[in-house]
């Protein structure tokens, strides 16, 4: 089973993503900000990260930049999910180390197709 870490300060968003992902057969953990996500990523290896941008303490860009610097941690792919749709934010997301960028509100099918794509589960 693949393990996914959902990082978002909004409890409802975390629960929404958890429901979608668990129904599709993934194991899900949650983190409420970038600091907690960094701590969790050091003790458990995740196959994928779903990362919000605006969070207190450490935002999504900060998390990804720091995470990508960790040489002894498996560098799994990350989807950045945010309310901001501006091109500038996308560029920042990719520069920080995101593999894909999604604009909220996410649709279940769209989220799952991106997850499967990054996990290499898309049929040839």
């Amino acid at each position: 089973m693949k393990h996914i870490l959902v990082i978002d300060d909004a409890a409802t968003v975390r629960l929404y993503h958890r429901n979608i992902l668990e129904k599709a057969g993934y194991s899900v953990d949650e983190a409420i900000n970038g600091i907690e996500a960094l701590e969790k990523s050091l003790v458990k290896s995740y196959d994928l990260y779903i990362v919000d941008v605006n969070m207190p303490k450490l935002d999504g860009y900060g998390f990804l930049k720091e995470f990508r610097r960790q040489e002894d941690v498996v560098q799994s792919p990350a989807i950045m999910v945010t309310t901001e749709s501006g091109n500038h934010d996308k560029i920042l997301g990719y520069a920080a180390g995101a593999n894909l960028y999604m604009t909220k509100p996410t649709k279940p099918n769209e989220l799952l197709s991106y997850v499967r794509l990054l996990l290499g589960e898309v049929a040839e």
Partner: peptide
């Protein structure tokens, strides 16, 4: 601001 960290700090 285009800087998320500054925005979040101001919000807090």
């Amino acid at each position: 601001s285009e800087e998320a960290a500054l925005r979040n700090e101001a919000i807090e």
